[in-house]
């Protein structure tokens, strides 16, 4: 009996490979960064061991990882939603700033002693402001087909400077000894913390958003439309799914979610608005979403991993001769992997 070997092109990557790919990527990136560490005369093994021990070896480390992962999950969902429709929302960073700015404005102008009322006002403000920031790019895209990569990116800078304006200007805390920051928020404007750690209510928002993302994309009509447009915009258009309407809605919601990340970050963690309060979460979120291949559970896992890198990086900072390797080591690690 003779066998014939037939090579056939697969149009979809197998499920196993799809799942294992990010792991391989991350491993390769760790290897690469290890090489970089070697160049600096640091043993990569020792550095990584210290990193993971610092992040996962204690309850405190673990709680800090979660604290860092919260804004990444939220903004990761935000950009993943847009990416699903092949809309490039690079503007999560600016949307985070707008969300934080609006919630600080809510604290300032609509103060309330009731925690529920105050937090709700802040949330709504953040959603509207972040959403508006996304809406601008979405509207320009739908109306005149303005490239959303550039507009969202430029709006990042505009948003960060806008926040700076208020922090350095009218909203500066007179008692902060010249440090640019707003006055601390009242207790009613703070998210509750859990278990005596810095883990805040944002974690609930993060988990809910992941579930919601899954639900909407998988089971709703709108989710179907998003997927249809993402897979083949022309076919979707013929099927009567409006690209313009969806892109505006999508960018608004994506921006709103990112804005929420800004709100939870300052209401949960920092308790005031400071310049540069987000160390590029909005950009990291893009890598998170992409490494997770836009999969909701993946977003959670990758965010957690990024949190490990962030917290672990803080630990090595203390023990090794590189003075501040933290941000850069993890940037390198995430930066080397485009994921597709």
């Amino acid at each position: 009996m003779r066998y014939r070997i037939v090579l056939r092109r697969r149009f979809k990557t197998g499920a196993f490979f799809e799942g294992i790919l990010p792991v391989i990527s991350i491993f390769a990136a760790l290897l690469f960064s290890g090489g970089a560490l070697l160049l600096f005369g640091v043993s990569p093994l020792a550095a990584y061991r210290a990193m993971f021990r610092g992040a996962l070896g204690s309850g405190y480390g673990l709680s800090e990882v979660i604290v860092k992962a919260i804004p990444l999950v939220i903004s990761g969902v935000a950009v993943a939603l847009a990416f699903r429709m092949k809309v490039w929302n690079i503007g999560a960073e600016g949307q985070i700033y707008l969300g934080a700015l609006a919630s600080a404005a809510a604290v300032r102008f609509l103060p309330s002693d009731s925690r529920v009322v105050m937090l709700l006002t802040m949330t709504v403000a953040a959603i509207i402001a972040g959403g508006a920031w996304g809406y601008v790019a979405g509207f320009l895209k739908s109306r005149w087909n303005v490239n959303e990569v550039i507009t969202t990116l430029m709006l990042n800078y505009v948003g960060i400077h806008l926040a700076d304006y208020f922090i350095y200007g009218p909203w500066r805390d007179p008692s902060s000894l010249g440090f640019p920051m707003t006055p601390p928020f009242p207790p009613s404007a703070r998210l509750p913390l859990f278990f005596g750690t810095r883990v805040h209510l944002g974690i609930l928002a993060a988990v809910l958003l992941v579930l919601l993302f899954r639900l909407v994309i998988r089971w709703t009509r709108w989710g179907f439309e998003i997927r249809a447009i993402g897979d083949n915009p022309r076919a979707a258009e013929y099927a009567g799914i409006s690209y313009g309407r969806n892109v505006v809605l999508l960018m608004f919601i994506s921006g709103a979610i990112a804005g929420l990340a800004g709100m939870t970050e300052i209401a949960g963690l920092q308790g005031r608005l400071q310049p540069g309060f987000s160390p590029g979460y909005g950009y990291t979120a893009i890598i998170v979403a992409w490494l997770a291949r836009l999969n909701p559970w993946g977003i959670m896992m990758v965010s957690f991993f990024m949190g490990v890198l962030l917290v672990g990086g803080d630990t090595i900072q203390v023990i090794n001769p590189l003075r501040h390797p933290r941000r850069d080591t993890y940037r390198e690690i995430r930066g080397t992997e485009p994921g597709a």
Partner: peptide
């Protein structure tokens, strides 16, 4: 974007 982020991180390190 990934290459940009790599450049940003590596150059600052």
């Amino acid at each position: 974007l990934a290459v940009t982020m790599f450049g940003t991180g590596a150059s600052s390190l």
